[in-house]
Design a protein around this nucleic acid. Structure first.
Lengths: 160, 160
DNA sequence: ATATTATTGAAAATGATTATCAATAAGGAA
DNA sequence: TTCCTTATTGATAATCATTTTCAATAATAT
């Protein structure tokens, strides 16, 4: 049961933000949000397209791209680049400035692992860094990514 | 005067590694390395192509891509993705496992700022995280990136 | 219910990167 | 040094994710 999907009043938690921005609430948009909400993380545009297609077969890939762009602009979705040539998307989940978006990426097989260990120390460091950078460069930080590249267990075993 | 370019014996510091790997030392490769060494950071493949072209006009873009791929595979160069659709490259500079590759990226104008503040705390955190991740997931970490996204001074001013 | 206009989806366009392949040149052997 | 083997090169074509175009459609305000 996805967190927050039914909460926040009738019609879904994000609809308020849509109406406020002058955006229309359409079937494709509802279903894309639903798929993002029900899914594991880091889906590619095509992954999302295929899942939406199951529910709403007249969907077009173009619409998926356009909707994702909108959602990123609205801050509801994060866009990642893992270096394999396709972008990945995941819901922001509403924690605002303190969401974590950290991954281990196997440079051999492309496997991606999420992790959320060492959050406290990390938050501390990020907070300090953020303040320092805002002061020093006048940069307003909206979010950050921390990614580790290397070999996953399997690929390490194979290479030995 | 680029650090290390003339050091490490006759012919350049990286030539040993090339010969050891069975790779040939060619003019295009030499000049691409030279350009990377003399340049500021995070160049795109086309940036590199244009700079090499000044010195060696028969260079082909294909060769630039192929050479960069080789250099990344050899660990001499890092490849970054800032989310603007083109990869960026920069020399590893030989610090091995402790190089820093951190950027502030303006999501409005694409400006990229390097930073290296808070290195000590960060190294500490990275070291702990690395150990933990290697133990927990059997992942062998080769390197990492930390990137901040937001609005640079100028874009912030414009949006106000 | 109707008018307005944001949104959609198919198809074509774009732009970065990769594959193909004949010609060339690096480095070892004679 | 000269010859041979084969890695490397560069022009061209191909690929693949993402964008643009544009007429048709549908969401909202009136």
């Amino acid at each position: 049961m996805p967190r927050g999907w039914y909460g926040g009043g009738p019609g879904g938690w994000w609809q308020r933000q849509f109406r406020g921005g002058g955006y229309r609430i359409t079937m494709p948009r509802q279903i894309i949000l639903q798929v993002l909400d029900e899914s594991k993380r880091h889906l590619s545009a095509e992954d999302i397209y295929l899942k939406v297609y199951q529910i709403y077969p007249t969907i077009g890939l173009t619409t998926v791209y356009r909707t994702l762009e909108l959602l990123v602009r609205m801050g509801l979705v994060f866009k990642f680049d893992f270096g394999d040539g396709r972008a990945r998307y995941e819901l922001t989940r509403g924690d605002g400035n303190l969401s974590h978006h950290h991954h281990l990426i196997c440079t051999n097989c492309g496997r991606i692992i999420d992790y959320d260990d060492f959050i406290e120390e990390e938050l501390e460091l990020i907070k300090k860094t953020r303040q320092e950078l805002e002061k020093k460069y006048g940069f307003e930080i909206r979010n950050h990514t921390l990614q580790f590249y290397g070999l996953c267990k399997k690929c390490k075993a194979i290479k030995e």
